[in-house]
Amino acid sequence: MTSTLLRPSRRPSANAGGRAGARSTAGRSRPGYWFVLPAVALFAIFFLYPLLSSLWQSFFSTTGGESTWVGGAQYLRLFHDPLVAKSLFNVGLILVIQVPLMVCTALGLAYLLNQSWLRFRTGFRAMHFLPAVTTLVAYSLVFRVMLATDGGAVNQLLAMVGMSPVDWLNSEAWSRVALIASITWRWTGYNMVIILAGLQGIPAELYEAARIDGAGRWAIFTKIVIPQLRPVILFSSITSTIGALQLFDENFILTGGGPNNATLTPVLYLYKVGFQQFDFGYASAIAWLLVAIIAVVSVVQFAIMKEKK
């Protein structure tokens, strides 16, 4: 069966041979289905039910083991809940500061680590990637030790340059700074690798042509590397944005959402609502609100990066 369906179509493609703009070869719909089939089938089998189930649950309220249909009441509740507003504000702040910071750092690092003249290249790459492979439990202990107010490594460093100790995890402002720093530490190497892989897709001819035209390093970086990397940068931006809006692990471990909810995020909040207060209906409503917000932000990012559909 597969062989008949995968038999090449003899129809010539509308934009055969083209590179830019030829994002898809028109008329080849059947093979397209077959390539996405395994993934779509797996999603349908394993995720359709959980997704619909969580949506369904968001119309229920559960107390004392009894579920009752409450219509849109859980969604109305979202708008009167100060913790929902606060958690959204917190991730908004993190998103605006952390994602550009991290994507730019990762882009710069990847570019430097891709230079052919660089010595110890593998070693440098591996060291920058190390944070991405840390287990969560080691990560949590290491950061709590580094950020401890009394005798923590960071405060000892600050003391060496004559600064007073900072109450990293107990102050509302500093706990946000600590959180942003620790997410950036953990995820920059990850994005660096993805961009590094993307850099390999840039044809060497483009660099050569630019050099012949007398372009400097900065010009090559901005005029050739960045435009060529657009899909990869879009990928990095969108996944980092989703990561920031769904932030959970880091604040769960480091601050538990405190102090005074300064590092509470929507996912941490819905975890508390669902798994500590057992209000799975409301937790699902928070989740779907978050999905809506992420979807809007992602569409905006697609539009900004001007991806042709």
């Binding site: 619909l52 189930s53 369904w56 649950q57 229920f60 579920s67 799975f280």
Partner: peptide, 8 residues
């Protein structure tokens, strides 16, 4: 879902 197994 409607048959009720969704709400736990």
């Amino acid at each position: 879902l409607l048959s009720g197994c969704a709400t736990g």
